[in-house]
Design a binder for these strands. Structure first.
Length: 797
DNA sequence: GTAGGGTTAG
C-alpha cells in the first residue's frame, strides 16, 4: 500500500515528464505512452492533470481514438478534460461530437474557458451564426465573457456581418466590456471591418476608412495588427495602399511581408511578388514556410520555372529540417511547379520523398497525372488515395472527360453523388464536358437544367463547358446563346465559341468573332490560334490562315508550336496545296516530329496524295514503329483512292509487325460500297438493325481483307448506359448513313434519344457530297437537308 | 483547457 505522499510525488514526477512533451511531435507521443504505461503499472489511478495532459497529447498526436478511450475511462471527467475534448473534436471538424460533450456538461460545472472552446470551434469551422448564438446563451447564463471570448466572437462575426452598422455595434459592445485593451481583440475587431469592406455588397471605402481610423488610434501595434491591415488593403484590391503600410512598418515581421507577397500572387503580379521576396532576403526579414509556398506558387503561375527550381535547391540545401513540418505545404507547391512545366516525373519524385502528405499533396499529383493525360496512372492513383474530397472527384471527372473517357467520367459523377457529395460548378463542368465527348445532348440538357436550378449557370467553368457541349452536339445556336448570356466571359469562352463556329463550317463567322474579340481588347493565346487556324482550314481560307499564323509571332509574341505548324499543314493539304505543306515542314525552326508527319499523312489521306502520304508514313514508321495510327491513316488513304489491295497489304503489314490495335471503321474506306439502310422508330429493332447491318458489312469487308470493329458497337449496346452507347457511336451511325445508297430525297429518322451531333453532322455533309444526292435526316421535329456537302437547316444555322 | 494575421490542389 502506497502512502498518500508517495502517490503525490509520483504524480508530480509524471506530470513533469508529460510537460516536457511537445505535442504534434512523434517522440513526445511515445514518451506519453511510456509515462502512461508507468502510471498504469504503478497502480496509480489516472485522474486530474495527468489524464487531461495525456488526452491533450494523444489527440494532438492524432491518436484521437485513444484520447477518447481515455476520456471515457475517467469516471468523472472535469471541465478541463471536457474542454480538451471539445477542442479536439472541433479541430477534427466534428462539431456534432463537440456539441454532445458540451451539452452533457452540467451548467454548474461550466466556466468561461469551456464556453470559449466551443465558440472557437464554431468560429474555426466557419459557422458564424452558431458561434454568436452560443455567445448570447453564455451571457444569458450569466457567464462573464473575456478577451478570448471576444476574439473568437469577433472572428465569427467576420463570417456573417455585411454592413457598417453591425461593425459599429460590435465595436460599441467591445468598448462597453472594456475589452479593447487586448491586442488580440483589437486585431479581431480590425479584421471585422476589413473583411466587411471586402464584401461585394458594400462600398469598401468608408469601412476601410473606419478600419484605418481604428488602426491609427491603436496605442500599440503588433505584427498581427500590421498584417491584418495589409491583407485588408490587399483584399480590397488596393495593392499600392497595402505596400505603403508595409513600407511604413518600423519592425519587419515576416508574416506581414508574406501577406504582401501573397497579395501580389493573387492579383497575378508574379514579378512583384518575386521582387519583394528578393528584398526580403536582402534585408534579412524572416523567411518561412509560408513565404516559400507563395514564392514557388508565383514561379509556377508566372512562368519562372528555373527560378522555382533554384528556390527548391536552396530549400533542400538550407532549410531541410525533418523535425519541422516544413515540407508539407512547400512540397505541395513544388509538386505543382514541376507538373505545370511538364515534369510529372519530377513531381512524382517529390511526392514519394515527402515524409508527411495530406490530401492536397495527393490531389496535386493527381492533377499532374490528369493534366499530362497520363490517365492510367491517374486512375490507379485515384483508386489508392487514402482520402478524397470534392476536389479529388472534380479533378478526376474533368480529367476523364477531357481525355476522352466520357462514359467513365459520367459514371464517376454519379458515384460522387452517391457518396454524398454535392457537385459544385467545376464538377458539373466536368460532367458537361463528358457529354460533349459523348455527343450526349439529352444528358447535357438535363445537367443544364440541374445547373440552372442550383444556380451554377453563371459561372465561367460551367458556361465554357456548355458552349463546347452544345457545339459538339451540333446546336451552335444554343452555344451562341450561352456565350451571349454569360455574365462574365474569359478568353476560354471566346476560344470555345470561335471553335464552335469553326467546327461547323462557319469559318468566316469564326474569323469574324475572332476579329471582334481583338476589338474588345482580349489578347489571343496559343489555343486561340489553334482554333482560328482550324476554322480557316475547315473553311478553306488559306490566305487568312497564313496571315493569322504569321501574326502570332509578329503581333503577339507567341512562337508557333508544333501543333500550330500541324494546323498549317492541314490547312494547305485541305486546299490541295501540298508543296506549301511541305514548305511549312522545311521552314520549321525545329526538327519535325511525329505529330507533324501525322498531320501531313492525314492531309494526304483526305486528298489522296499518295506519294507524299507514303513519304510521311515512312517517317512515322521510323519515329514510332509500334503506333497503330500510322497504319490506320495509311490504309485510309489507300481506301480513299480505292486501292483495296494496298489497304489489305497495309493491314497485313501491321499484323506482321505485331502492332496491336485494329483500325476503326471510317467512312472513306467504304464509300464505294453503298447500301440502303433505314431505321424505324422503336429502340430495340434499331439497335438490332444497326448491328445486323454492320454484321453484313463485316462479311463484305472481310472479303477484301478488312476487319471492321463491329464488336465495339455490340459491346456498347450491351452496356448499362444504353443512351450513351447510342450517342457514343453517333459518328458511326453517320458512317452508316453515309454508306447508304439513298433513293433520291429519302428520309432517314434518327433515334428518339439521339440528336445530330457535330461529328455526325459533318460526316453526313461529307457523304451527301460523295453520294451526290440530297439526304434528309429527321431529328425529332426538325429536318436537316444535306446537299452537295452543305446543310440547309434553317432552324439550326 | 480557450483567442487574433500570412500558407499549397481544379
Amino acid at each position: 500500500m502506497r502512502n498518500v505522499l508517495d502517490v503525490r510525488v509520483l504524480a508530480n514526477r509524471y506530470f513533469a515528464q508529460l510537460n516536457l512533451c511537445c505535442p504534434q511531435n512523434l517522440s513526445s507521443y511515445s514518451l506519453a505512452r511510456t509515462v502512461h504505461g508507468h502510471v498504469i503499472a504503478s497502480g496509480f489511478k489516472l485522474r486530474g492533470h495527468i489524464v487531461n495532459r495525456l488526452i491533450d497529447i494523444y489527440w494532438k498526436s492524432s491518436d484521437f481514438v485513444y484520447a477518447r478511450k481515455l476520456f471515457d475511462e475517467i469516471p468523472q471527467p472535469d471541465v478541463i478534460a471536457r474542454t480538451t475534448l471539445i477542442t479536439a473534436y472541433s479541430a477534427l471538424g466534428n462539431l456534432k461530437m463537440a456539441r454532445e460533450i458540451f451539452n452533457e456538461t452540467p451548467l454548474d460545472m461550466r466556466d468561461t474557458v469551456f464556453y470559449n472552446a466551443m465558440i472557437t470551434g464554431y468560429s474555426h469551422m466557419n459557422d458564424g451564426h452558431s458561434a454568436i448564438e452560443l455567445f448570447r446563451a453564455m451571457r444569458w447564463a450569466n457567464f462573464q465573457p473575456d478577451d478570448f471570448t471576444f476574439a473568437s466572437v469577433l472572428s465569427a462575426s467576420t463570417l456573417i456581418f455585411y454592413d457598417e452598422r453591425q461593425c459599429g455595434q460590435m465595436h460599441g459592445t467591445v468598448v462597453k466590456f472594456g475589452i479593447e485593451i487586448f491586442p488580440a481583440v483589437l486585431n479581431a475587431l480590425l479584421s471585422v471591418y476589413v473583411k466587411c469592406a471586402s464584401s461585394p455588397l458594400v462600398s469598401s471605402s468608408s469601412l476601410m476608412a473606419s478600419a484605418r481610423k481604428l488602426f491609427d488610434e491603436m496605442p500599440k501595434r503588433n505584427e498581427f495588427i500590421w498584417t491584418t491591415l495589409i491583407t485588408g488593403y490587399v483584399r480590397n484590391g488596393d495593392l499600392t495602399g497595402a505596400r505603403e503600410i508595409l513600407d511604413t512598418m518600423t519592425e519587419q515581421p515576416g508574416i506581414a511581408w508574406n501577406a504582401m507577397i501573397s497579395g501580389y500572387l493573387h492579383h497575378g503580379l508574379f514579378e512583384d511578388a518575386l521582387t519583394l521576396f528578393r528584398k526580403m532576403r536582402l534585408l534579412g526579414v524572416q523567411v518561412d514556410e509560408s513565404t516559400y509556398t507563395s514564392v514557388i506558387s508565383a514561379c509556377a503561375d508566372g512562368g519562372f520555372f528555373l527560378l522555382g527550381k533554384q528556390v527548391h535547391a536552396y530549400i533542400l540545401k538550407n532549410e531541410l529540417n525533418p523535425d519541422r513540418d516544413f515540407l508539407l505545404s512547400v512540397g505541395n507547391t513544388l509538386i505543382t511547379l514541376y507538373w505545370k512545366y511538364g515534369k510529372v516525373d519530377g513531381a512524382r519524385k517529390i511526392f514519394y520523398e515527402m515524409p508527411v502528405k495530406d490530401i492536397i499533396t495527393w490531389n496535386t499529383l493527381l492533377s499532374g497525372y490528369v493534366n499530362a493525360g497520363r490517365m492510367e496512372e491517374a486512375k490507379s492513383f485515384f483508386a489508392q488515395m487514402p482520402e478524397k474530397n470534392l476536389l479529388t472527384w472534380t479533378v478526376m471527372i474533368s480529367g476523364l472527360a477531357q481525355n476522352g473517357f466520357g462514359e467513365q467520367a459520367l459514371k464517376l459523377f454519379n458515384q460522387m453523388k452517391l457518396d454524398g457529395y454535392e457537385p459544385n460548378d467545376y464538377a458539373f463542368a466536368g460532367a458537361i464536358t463528358a457529354c460533349s465527348v459523348l455527343g450526349a445532348l439529352e444528358n447535357g440538357r438535363q445537367l443544364h437544367a440541374q445547373i440552372v436550378h442550383l444556380g451554377h449557370d453563371s459561372t465561367l467553368s460551367v458556361g465554357n463547358a456548355m458552349i463546347t457541349m452544345y457545339a459538339r452536339c451540333g446546336i451552335v445556336e444554343a452555344a451562341r446563346t450561352m456565350f451571349l448570356t454569360m455574365p462574365f466571359v474569359d478568353p476560354v469562352s471566346w476560344n470555345s465559341m470561335i471553335a464552335a463556329l469553326g467546327q461547323h463550317g462557319h469559318g468566316v463567322k469564326a474569323i469574324e468573332l475572332y476579329e471582334q474579340m481583338l476589338k474588345e481588347g482580349i489578347l489571343p493565346d496559343r489555343r486561340t490560334f489553334l482554333t482560328v487556324l482550324s476554322a480557316c482550314s475547315h473553311a478553306g481560307l488559306v490566305e487568312e490562315g497564313n496571315r493569322y499564323f504569321n501574326s502570332m509571332l509578329e503581333n503577339y509574341g507567341i512562337a508557333p508550336g508544333e501543333d500550330h505548324y500541324a494546323r498549317m499543314i492541314d490547312l494547305f493539304c485541305r486546299a490541295g496545296k501540298f508543296s506549301d505543306a511541305k514548305n511549312v515542314i522545311d521552314s520549321m525552326p525545329f526538327e519535325a516530329r511525329a505529330p507533324i508527319w501525322e498531320a501531313l499523312l492525314a492531309g494526304c489521306r483526305t486528298h489522296g496524295n499518295m506519294d507524299l502520304g507514303i513519304e510521311a508514313a515512312e517517317k512515322l514508321f521510323k519515329l514510332i514503329p509500334q503506333h497503330d495510327g500510322t497504319y490506320v491513316l495509311l490504309s485510309n488513304m489507300y481506301a480513299s483512292l480505292g486501292r483495296w489491295n494496298d489497304v489489305a497489304r497495309t493491314r497485313k503489314l501491321m499484323r506482321d509487325r505485331g502492332v496491336k490495335k485494329e483500325p476503326a471503321c471510317s467512312w472513306t474506306e467504304v464509300e464505294n460500297k453503298v447500301h440502303v439502310f433505314l431505321v424505324d422508330d422503336t429502340v430495340h429493332p434499331e439497335v438490332l438493325s444497326i448491328y445486323n447491318y454492320l454484321e453484313k458489312l463485316n462479311l463484305e469487308m472481310k472479303k477484301i481483307g478488312y476487319i471492321p470493329d463491329t464488336k465495339y458497337v455490340l459491346h456498347d449496346m450491351e452496356s448499362e448506359h444504353k443512351e450513351y452507347a447510342l450517342s457514343t457511336h453517333s459518328e458511326k451511325l453517320a458512317v452508316a448513313f453515309g454508306l447508304m445508297k439513298l433513293p433520291q430525297g429519302a428520309t432517314v429518322r434518327v433515334f428518339k434519344n439521339l440528336r445530330i451531333c457535330g461529328d455526325c453532322h459533318n460526316a453526313i455533309k461529307f457523304m451527301s457530297k460523295v453520294v451526290g444526292r440530297e439526304i434528309v435526316v429527321r431529328d425529332g421535329k426538325r429536318f436537316h437537308h444535306f446537299k452537295n456537302g452543305e446543310c440547309s437547316c434553317r432552324n439550326y444555322w
